[in-house]
Nucleic acid binder design. Structure first.
Length: 1063
RNA sequence: GGGCCCGUAGCUCAGCUUGGCUGGAGCGCUCGGCUGAUAACCGGGAGGUCCGGGGUUCGAAUCCCCGCGGGCCCA
């Protein structure tokens, strides 16, 4: 039996209840079971980082995934939805350091010990996995929460090792001295992609220095730099080979700099008197030797004097500086590259902690940025410094601790991405579908600009590099699994945890020379961890069955920042391991921003906690809001107003549900016992229309889901609920539902409502899983014990194309346009909607519109609340509402004189519509008057609408509508009756009467003629208020007992009495 | 400096792929209605240089070019 739904829907109460029920009845497992035999569909979850609570962006990400996965599951696919957790890496290390009060890297090894540190990191990750899992569950996200993939398990680590071994075997991994970004606080290298997006404005010194040439007296190279601390490592000065360089005389001295920059630089240096001596291409300067400015301070440089020369490089620009670029191969990427080409030594006298080493001579022990000042002083003292200022520019920072990064030359391990690039791009173009398609362009541009991937980190909490190096012959051994390690280890190791410090202790015997091999102490870049997720999460290579069945994954979706991160790292390692793409479809989604389009950040104080939204509105509203706010791939501006609108939509949806279940329950409607054929015979036009609509909506929503246009799916559903279901269908069937007998037309309305809601809850299920479940339970499950227990076990609704009647839908929208027009006329004429009118005239602007209305006149007339409806097509006239020709008498007389009168007579006799069409088409009309041809221009006549007295009219999209606003005694009686019904209903409600309960009523009025008028409405009144006896009399005759109330109805006083009947 | 995206009502966004009749919705504003779906709901109205300029076309919010402004990614 269908049960009347709760009066109001309280998501905050219902959602946890439903969730608990899902839990106890194991609904998710049952759904999985149902699809277990179907075609597998491998979704790969991009693992969120297991640190801290979820934010709005994380919530959106999972909401998108959940909606699509629920949809895919309803479409009958066996969806694989294992959640992942990214657990390694610096962010967790930093948190644990904070907790343990650790300030430097040394303390980890010396004070705390690596073992304890790792233990704490793992615990931190586990705690946050648990915390975030609960938050995702509350969002209604259905995934295998009890069986996630976690990047710190031995299995996962072994997958990484296996992949690295593949890379090694293919010659794609190598150790190299490289200048890379280095964080002096975390004391580790950072990869290119870790630095992306981490450029912030900083203030740095800006200085001009002069380097004295050795072979030309009083001649100098003029050099500009913002990093004085790199001068101790200076090896050469680079100029552009093709740009012109000038020799500029200032007093007795000559400066060399780019000709194009002479004026600008001299101005900046404050030199007004100077003379350009000559100028030649940069390549002409090649080989000029100069005296290193800090030769005395950095003794080590004395060994390099043969290198201190001018070299040429294409990377030199003339945008800033002097065109003479100070080059320190140990401290800059470009410097390193050009240095390598010219055989310059990589001198990098800076330690991991950012302090100068022994090699830096005088500056030894100073932190490099602190040394800036000392170096500046030295330069000034030595007459090298020409000018010293401050510049604001963007500079890379550590993404975890915001420390400005340094460039430092160190030994690191690299994946040779440059070799793989062509393959990556080729396979990507061939195999991967990007949504939206322009994301692919963005991706390809990104890939084209990247270099090799530095995968080593000098840290602790990560996958240890499985690389052992022989202490004698330097042979490199890469281990691919724990088994392999056991076999190669010098001593038996048993089941160890594959993290540091356990693996650090394992030593191998070198296969080549037999000496001891020790592990390289580095760990892996975490982006490698997540990169291998598509097979590591399947347990490959240890177990290959699932991998062979499922890989590559069908679908992934993450935020736009992942284009150059996870989307990329996955493709790289996948090509390393398999020469294939790891996923087939990738949906890029946007960022969650605040309502002004700014990034949410703690410092701005504009962060929205998803929990806050859930507490106020529930998860369904948050989900629907985030999915409907815009296309997934555009940034989402979060605004509370938008959330509130969704909440109201949900409320209307619920009201429809309450309406339907209330009356169905009252009439003990049983959808199982319906003779559909008989019901269909009793369909009203609006019933067929509703069936057509629900099928159109199913079609539209399905198409939208297929295209990942989640916003269109959501908006289609919202508009269906509000416009079609609530504002139109329920409005049309309301009266039918009041019929008390078992009327077949009422039954028809129930059947249609039932079918509409039954379909609707399935369409809504992926977006609003909670309320869909509740509605399904109240209406479908309650009536049919044999129905599946959860809406999420049902298949996606199919589309009945035959039920879609485009003409009917169009006709109905025309009806609605005229009903709205009618409301506008009534407002003009001050006629309440409740008051019936005697006549309405409609003239459609096209014959199509008129024919579309055929069959819907009843609906139209009912909603227009009129006694008579006259439907006119274009060109049809009626006495009350006609178009007439108005010739411009004065003009015609002036031009035609005597002839004007017959012309006017003729014009007025002509068919106004044909005349109008002719004038509109040609600009004039031709007549034959008394044997003469006369041409009438459009200025000489006009057309006017003539409305009969008492009528009012407005235009709509489909034509004009006119209403007779005159009142008759009969109409007045009806109006009065309706006013009284409304008030009696209020009184019923105040008495808290059950809907079907009967009453006795006495209506008292002070106006005698009303007694006569109302007598004609006796039946109507009784029926509407469910009165057994209804008496109409003078107000003074109304006597208690009963509930009595006085009312003012449009200026007249009434006394109404309602008597409750004994049960 | 480069790549990609965005710019439509006071606000948030549809429409643009495939050019065409009067450019839509919600919110807000304003006026009104309804009261057995009711801490709701419904209707009317006002409100637009479709970022600017040029081009293609009979016709441009839509296609092309150039600017301006914003976002993201990269230098």
């Amino acid at each position: 039996m269908i049960q009347p739904a709760a009066r109001a829907y309280d998501a905050r109460k219902s959602e946890p209840e439903i969730q608990a029920w899902w839990q106890t009845s194991d609904t998710y497992e049952k759904v999985k079971q149902l699809r277990s035999g179907a075609r597998p569909w491998y979704f790969l979850d991009g693992p969120p980082y297991a640190s801290g609570a979820i934010h709005l962006g994380t919530a959106w990400n999972k909401i998108i995934k959940d909606a699509l996965l629920r949809y895919a599951s309803m479409r009958g696919l066996n969806v694989l939805r294992q959640p992942g957790w990214d657990c390694h890496g610096l962010p967790i290390e930093v948190k644990v350091e904070e907790k343990l009060g650790i300030k430097t890297k040394k303390e980890i090894e010396q004070r705390v010990g690596v073992e304890k540190f790792i233990k704490r990191c793992k615990q931190w990750a586990l705690d946050h996995v648990a915390l975030m899992t609960e938050q995702f569950k509350r969002l209604g996200v259905w995934m295998d929460w009890d069986n996630p993939y976690v990047t710190f398990t031995n299995d996962f680590i072994e997958s990484a090792w296996w992949t690295l071994k593949r890379a090694h075997e293919r010659g794609l991994m190598r150790k190299d001295l490289r200048v890379i970004h280095w964080c002096p606080r975390c004391e580790t290298a950072l990869a290119e992609h870790e630095v992306r997006g981490e450029y912030y404005d900083v203030k740095d010194p800006s200085l001009f220095a002069r380097f004295k040439l050795r072979d030309r007296p009083n001649e100098y190279l003029l050099v500009w730099t913002t990093t004085p601390w790199t001068l101790p490592a200076d090896m050469a000065v680079c100029v552009h080979p093709e740009h012109a360089y000038a020799r500029v005389a200032v007093g007795n001295e000559v400066y060399i700099l780019a000709e194009a920059l002479v004026e600008k630089v001299m101005k900046e240096l404050g030199i007004e008197e100077y003379r350009v001596l000559d100028s030649k291409e940069g390549r002409g300067l090649r080989g000029l030797r100069y005296k290193h400015p800090l030769l005395g301070e950095v003794p080590k440089q004395s060994g390099y004097v043969q290198h201190h020369r001018v070299i040429c490089g294409e990377h030199v620009t003339l945008e800033e500086g002097t065109g003479c670029v100070h080059t320190a191969p140990g401290h800059g990427e470009e410097d390193f590259a050009i240095g390598a080409r010219h055989g310059l030594p990589v001198f990098s006298p800076v330690g991991p902690d950012g302090k100068f080493t022994q090699d830096a001579g005088k500056y030894r022990g100073m932190f490099v940025k602190d040394a800036d000042r000392v170096i500046l002083d030295d330069l000034r003292r030595k007459g090298v410094l020409m000018k010293h200022g401050v510049i604001t520019h963007t500079y890379p920072h550590c993404w975890r601790c915001r420390t400005p990064l340094l460039f430092r030359a160190t030994d690191q391990w690299f994946l040779s991405v440059s070799e793989l690039k062509p393959k990556i791009l080729e396979k990507n173009a061939e195999r991967v579908r990007w949504v939206p398609d322009w994301a692919a362009t963005r991706y390809v541009n990104g890939v084209e600009s990247v270099g090799d991937w530095c995968i080593s980190r000098q840290r602790y909490w990560g996958i240890p590099l499985p690389i052992w190096v022989c202490q004698r012959c330097r042979e490199t051994i890469v281990i691919g699994s724990l088994e392999e390690l056991k076999g190669a280890a010098k001593e038996s190791i048993g089941e160890i945890d594959l993290h540091r410090p356990d693996v650090d202790r394992v030593t191998l015997r070198c296969g080549r020379c037999g000496a001891e091999a020790k592990r390289v102490p580095d760990v892996l870049d975490v982006w490698f961890d997540s990169g291998i997720a598509s097979w590591a999460s399947l347990g490959y290579p240890k177990r290959s069955e699932r991998f062979e069945q499922l890989w590559p994954s069908e679908f992934i979706t993450e935020g736009e920042d992942q284009v150059t991160k996870w989307f990329y790292s996955q493709q790289v390692v996948s090509v390393v391991a398999f020469d294939e793409m790891p996923y087939k479809i990738v949906l890029m989604h946007g960022f969650a921003l605040d309502e002004h389009g700014r990034k949410m950040s703690k410092s701005r104080g504009n962060v929205i906690d998803p929990q806050e939204v859930i507490d106020k509105y529930g998860a369904d509203v948050l989900r629907f809001y985030m999915l409907s706010a815009g296309p997934p791939w555009e940034d989402l501006r979060f605004g509370w107003k938008g959330v509130d609108i969704v909440a109201r939509m949900l409320n209307v949806l619920w009201n429809v549900h309450v309406f339907a279940t209330t009356y169905m329950a009252l009439d003990e409607f049983d959808p199982k016992k319906i003779d559909l054929e008989r019901v269909r015979e009793n369909f009203m036009p609006e019933d067929s229309w509703m069936i057509s609509r629900i099928n159109s909506v199913t079609r539209d929503a399905t198409e939208a889901f297929q295209k990942f246009d989640l916003h269109h799916a959501a908006r289609t559903l919202a508009s269906f609920v509000l416009e079609d279901l609530s504002r139109w269908y329920v409005r049309l069937v309301r009266e039918r539902v009041w019929i008390e007998r078992d009327d077949p037309r009422k039954l028809a309305a129930y059947v249609v409502l039932y079918q509409a809601i039954h379909t609707l809850v399935r369409l809504l299920a992926p977006i609003m899983p909670y309320v869909a479940e509740v509605m399904y339970r109240d209406m479908v499950k309650a009536a049919d014990a044999g129905a599946p227990e959860s809406v999420h076990m049902l298949p996606w609704p199919s589309i009945d194309e035959r039920a879609i009647d485009a003409k009917l839908e169009r006709g109905m929208s025309i009806v609605r346009a005229f009903v709205e027009g009618g409301a506008a006329v009534r407002q003009q004429a001050q006629l309440k909607l409740r008051w019936p009118v005697s006549k309405v005239l409609i003239r459609t602007s096209s014959s199509e519109a008129k024919s579309a209305l055929r069959g819907l006149q009843g609906v139209l007339q009912g909603q227009l609340n009129c006694k008579e409806l006259v439907l006119l097509g274009p060109g049809e006239q009626s006495a009350e509402f006609r178009l007439v020709t108005k010739p411009n008498t004065q003009r015609l007389q002036e031009r035609l004189g005597r002839l004007s009168q017959p012309v006017i007579d003729t014009l007025q006799k002509m068919d106004v519509f044909r005349l109008g069409a002719e004038v509109q088409r040609y600009g004039f009309a031709g007549l034959q008057i008394e044997g003469q041809k006369v041409s009438i221009s459009s200025e000489e006549l006009s057309f006017e609408e003539e409305l009969q007295e008492g009528f009012a009219a407005v235009s709509t999209e489909f034509g004009r509508i006119a209403i007779d606003s005159r009142m008759t005694p009969e109409l007045q009686a009806e109006c009065l009756a309706r006013e009284l019904v409304r008030r009696l209903q209020t009184m019923r409600k105040e008495l808290d009467l059950a809907m079907e309960e009967q009453i006795d009523v006495v209506v008292g009025t002070e106006v005698d003629e009303y007694i006569k008028l109302l007598a004609t409405q006796q039946d109507y009144l009784s029926r509407e208020v469910r009165a057994r006896n209804l008496r109409i009399c003078r107000a003074s005759e109304v006597e208690e007992p009963g509930y009595m109330k006085e009312w003012n109805v449009d200026g007249d006083r009434f006394k109404l009495l309602v008597k409750r009947l004994p049960a």
